[in-house]
Design a binder for these strands. Structure first.
Lengths: 336, 336
DNA sequence: AAGCTTCATGTAATCCTTTTCAATGGCTTT
DNA sequence: AAAGCCATTGAAAAGGATTACATGAAGCTT
């Protein structure tokens, strides 16, 4: 049997209430406080968090539900969320949904059973639709994938704007046949597609969009197919980091040069982005800000459960590198 | 007030014990079981995990403590561990220690308070030493960083062997001045250093090792310094993924060609490893196997707490790419 | 000096389950 | 038909903390 608060109380010659108050910085005389602290040190007592949570009805736990922690954006996000959470004395439960609504449903049930204080969630498109009507027994902040401002708070990149920026950039370096490659599971992809359409239209460019599973392999396969046609594009925009890698692989397979034959650009800046090929042009997402803002929205929501839902959009930053350098006959060095 | 097991019992016209038995597949007549299940569905009841844990004394929780989830090896590891855990009805608490022993100590205390079933841990060197004497109130499986087989189970790469493989490979393509770059916080780096020393010695090669913080920036700085000397190495082995990236960056800065001027190789295979420069030669760690083995060791330990500690070593796989292609005057295509 | 407030402390109820133990009722056995 | 057994079921204890409420002492006011 482990040491409980009773043992500490007995040893210090006080009631359990006093021991509890020492932990919660309640009113305790310096003398008793010291006796209790000695007893804690002597016994090696550690409070039982399950008991504490049960009685206090505060789980001090937040859920984080993403498609796959291995996706760089989510990796970075989880790190920020955990830092912020631990800083305010909360724990994080991480769930990988693999873009499956079934798993999302299962994990939502788990979140309920854990009585989480709140949930930070990048939902699939399917769940996002259902969320519009349904209420959950805990506050939710959507990240990365927001949809229209509904009943839940959300914080997302300005995807429309960001994608338009990429299109304009490719246009500025002289590309006119720019295709877009988008994921088929997230609302993010939809927003980026719309931005792509708007920008190509406003520039009077042709547009052609492809939707595939959000993986390097699927992207590579699709691009190989697209580029096997006679009328080759001269620019590609990929809607995620992994898909961008797929595009690069396809270019290698096709022995096409970047940026001379095809300029390519995408999303998310990573340590290795400047080292792949001639350096990859990307929109950098402010992951740190996104994560912190999500936590802020969540805490605000806890304070004011009835306040209207907020949708926060953050802007991305274009980082131009060799993969979209103007063609000069010479492969440029990467640019920061 | 949320719905509790009492409400369900009342609605189904049974005792709370019966409801509990329905959840734990205890002996309940089909008739009552159905009534209870109807009541559960009607009320939307979800068991309270804190209460369950408190009473049953099983937290069904395992801790995972790593330096930084953003480090690719740990990202992959965490994904495997979580999958395995959820599969057997457990949940995971993830902690980032940032290589700080203070944070490790803090999180260890948290693990105690959570009454974790077990801990999977990549400890810093400092903690590893302390672990040799100290016991913890829950079983621990060390991953990635094991030290000598002590009182705790561990599963690690055969780092000695793996590094020797890299040295022999560089030697085979004609390199003789091979320097090693190692992290200064983990035992892994020590093992790799020893493998490096043994291999260079057995081949009659000179050896020179550098120890830096395990980051791309520190690695880049150190390499710039090393290569500013007159007698330039012709091969570099980096002890981690991030450090390998630092080496690549340094090469770019120095305008040295890979592999013509300097051959480079390192650890961990990632999606982008084949796309950086001419493709990076690496030792691929069997992350999946490592994670699953860690879980197996943990579950075995729970069944047999007194059994002697086990140290499992898994072998890495050499993946040769352009960064160590034999010099032919031509930059090779990446090879799988 | 009586009465009131304030503060530290203890007692006991409470949070929600699981689990032990006793009771019930239907069968089988002799 | 009495005894014994098995399978279900319910009542109540237990798990370890927090917290509402009661208590008592000390300090202050008038």
């Amino acid at each position: 049997m482990a040491i409980s608060i009773k043992d500490v109380a007995q040893r210090a010659g006080v009631s359990v209430a006093t021991v509890s108050r020492v932990f919660s910085n309640g009113p305790v005389s310096p003398e008793l406080r010291e006796r209790v602290e000695k007893a804690i040190a002597a016994t090696g007592y550690r409070p039982n968090l399950s008991a504490r949570r049960l009685r206090s009805q505060h789980s001090q736990t937040i859920g984080l539900m993403v498609a796959d922690i291995r996706s760089p954006f989510f990796t970075a996000l989880s790190r920020v969320v955990e830092d912020e959470a631990y800083r305010s004395g909360m724990r994080v439960i991480l769930c990988n949904t693999d873009e499956s609504t079934d798993r999302e449903t299962m994990y939502l049930r788990l979140m309920e059973e854990e009585r989480v204080t709140g949930l930070i969630w990048a939902p699939t498109r399917g769940s996002l639709e259902r969320l519009a009507d349904e209420d959950l027994p805990f506050p939710v902040v959507l990240v990365d994938r927001g949809g229209p401002v509904g009943r839940h708070d959300s914080v997302v990149l300005d995807n429309h704007q960001a994608t338009a920026t990429l299109v304009h950039h490719l246009h500025a370096i002289g590309r006119s046949r720019i295709v877009g490659l988008f994921g088929n599971t997230s609302s993010t992809a939809i927003d980026r597609h719309l931005g792509y359409l708007a920008a190509t239209a406003s520039l009077g460019l042709s547009s052609e969009a492809f939707f595939v599973a959000p993986s390097a392999e699927a992207a590579e396969r699709e691009i190989l197919k697209v580029f096997s046609r006679p009328d080759r594009p001269d620019g590609v925009i990929a809607s995620s980091n992994l898909m961008l890698l797929g595009v690069v692989k396809a270019m290698r397979r096709l022995v096409l040069r970047t940026p001379d034959d095809v300029a390519i650009a995408g999303f998310d800046n990573e340590t290795w982005s400047e080292l792949v090929g001639p350096g990859l042009t990307v929109i950098e997402q402010p992951v740190g800000d996104i994560g912190r803002m999500a936590m802020t929205l969540l805490f605000d929501r806890l304070k004011a459960p009835k306040a209207p839902a907020r949708k926060v959009m953050l802007s991305g930053r274009l980082i131009v590198r060799g993969s979209t350098a103007p063609v000069t006959g010479l492969v440029d060095e990467p640019v920061d």
